[in-house]
Simulated assay, not measured.
Amino acid sequence: MTDPKAELYASDLTGAIWRKASASGAEHDCVEIADNVPALVPVRDSKRPTGPPITFSPEAWRAFIAHLD
């Protein structure tokens, strides 16, 4: 049996193009997402760009964003 959490971190994101959240402004404490990765929405901490990102399915990401409003 595989660890479901391991799948969140296992994707190859070498081609990911990261952008900061629009709400971050000039601050450095924010999240970054890459929206050029097919079938995934990778998210990482901008203070730790070499740390492991967490990946979401597009559906899960949309559901998360919908609850922020």
Results as ranks from 00 to 15, higher is better:
Ala16Leu: 07
His67Ser: 15
Val43Tyr: 02
Val41Asn: 00
Pro38Arg: 10
Asp12Tyr: 07
Glu7Ile: 04
Ser46Lys: 00
Asp3Pro: 05
Pro58Gln: 14
Leu13Cys: 07
Asp45Arg: 05
Val37Arg: 05
Phe56Ala: 03
Ala60Lys: 11
Ala6Arg: 12
Pro38Ala: 12
Pro53Glu: 02
Leu40Glu: 04
Ala63Val: 10
Ser11Trp: 01
Glu7Asp: 10
Tyr9Trp: 10
Ala10Asp: 09
Tyr9Ala: 08
Tyr9Val: 13
Thr2Phe: 07
Leu68Tyr: 10
Phe64Ser: 03
Phe56Ile: 07
Trp61Asp: 11
Arg48Phe: 12
Ile33Ala: 06
Leu13Ile: 07
Ala39Phe: 13
Ile17Gly: 08
Asp35Gly: 12
Ala16Pro: 01
Lys5Asn: 12
His67Cys: 12
Glu32Val: 10
Val43Asp: 02
Phe56Met: 08
Ala23Asn: 03
Cys30Asp: 02
Ser22Ala: 13
Asp29Lys: 14
Asp35Val: 13
Ile17Arg: 14
Pro58Thr: 13
Ile65Arg: 11
Gly51Val: 03
Ile33Tyr: 02
Glu59Ile: 11
Asp3Cys: 09
His28Glu: 11
Arg62Val: 08
Glu27Lys: 11
Gly15Leu: 05
Asp69Tyr: 07
Ser11His: 05
Ser11Ala: 07
Gly51Ala: 08
Ser46Thr: 00
Pro52Cys: 08
Glu7Thr: 03
Ile54Phe: 10
